[in-house]
Design a protein around this nucleic acid. Sequence first.
DNA 1: ATGGTTGCTTGGCAA
Length: 268
Amino acid sequence: MRLNIATWNINSVRLRMPIVAHFLKKHRPDVLCLQETKCRDGEFPYKRLKRLGYTHIAINGQKGYHGVAIASRLPLDTIGKRNFCDKGDARHLSVSVQVGGRAIALHNFYVPAGGDEPDPQINPKFAHKLAFLDEMSQWIAAAKIADNPAIMVGDLNVAPLETDVWSHKQLLKVVSHTPIEVEKLGRVLNSGPWVDAMRHHVPHQEKLYTWWSYRSPDWAKADKGRRLDHVWVSGCLQPGLGGLRVLKEARGWERPSDHVPVMISLDV
DNA sequence: ATGGTTGCTTGGCAA
C-alpha cells in the first residue's frame, strides 16, 4: 500500500481554502498536514474538507496565530497535542494513521519563527525557538518516537544545509540559517533514527526551497528561497520511500501562501 | 543599512 502525505504552511486556512481545494482535487494526497491555520477549532473549514473526501480531521487551533491540522482520507486517531515550552501555543499535533492494517504515528509541527535578531539574550522570540528545538530533541528521544513507524512533518523554520538557502554566506546571521539553529535542528534529527526524506531524494549539492518571502516583488525571478518545511521518516520506513514533490508552482497561485506544499509517497 | 509584503484586525504585532 502506498501512502501519500503532504505538508503545507497555509498562512490562514480560511483565506486560502480555494487553493487548498484546488490542490486536493489535483493531487489527492491521502493525508494533508497544515500549519499556521490561524483559526479556532470551531472556525476550521471542516465541511469543505469533508466534501472533498477528507473526512478524518484532527485540529489543534488557536485564534489568530499558529494552529496545526491534519485532514485525511484514511482513518485517524488523535494521539496528542504537546504544549511545548508551556506557552499554550498550538504548534504540535500527533495522530495515528491506519493504513494497510498498520498504524503509523504522524507528527505535525510548527516551530516558532524566532523573530529578527539572532541573539537569545536580547530577543525572547529567538530564545523561545531555541528552547522549543531543545524540547523537541529531548522529548522525541525520551519517548523513542522514531523507534517505531513514524513520520514527522512541518514548518520547522530552519534551513539546515548550505543548499537549503539562496546564499549560505548572506544568511549566516539571518534567523532560520544561523549555526546555533542548524546545530539544534541537527540534534532533533539525531533524537532517533530519522531520515530526512526530502534530501533522501535530492542530492545535498542541489538547491531546494519550500518558502519564498512575500517581500520580494518578483519572487520567481529573484528565487531567494529557503527550505523551511521538512518531512522526516523513521528508519524502519526508509525502504518504502518513494517520490518527492515540492510544488513550487503553488507559490504563483492566486493569493498564495509564502510556503508551497511538499508531498512524499511511501510504501507501507 | 534598510525596507520590502501579508494576515489578523483596525493598531500594531508576527512572520
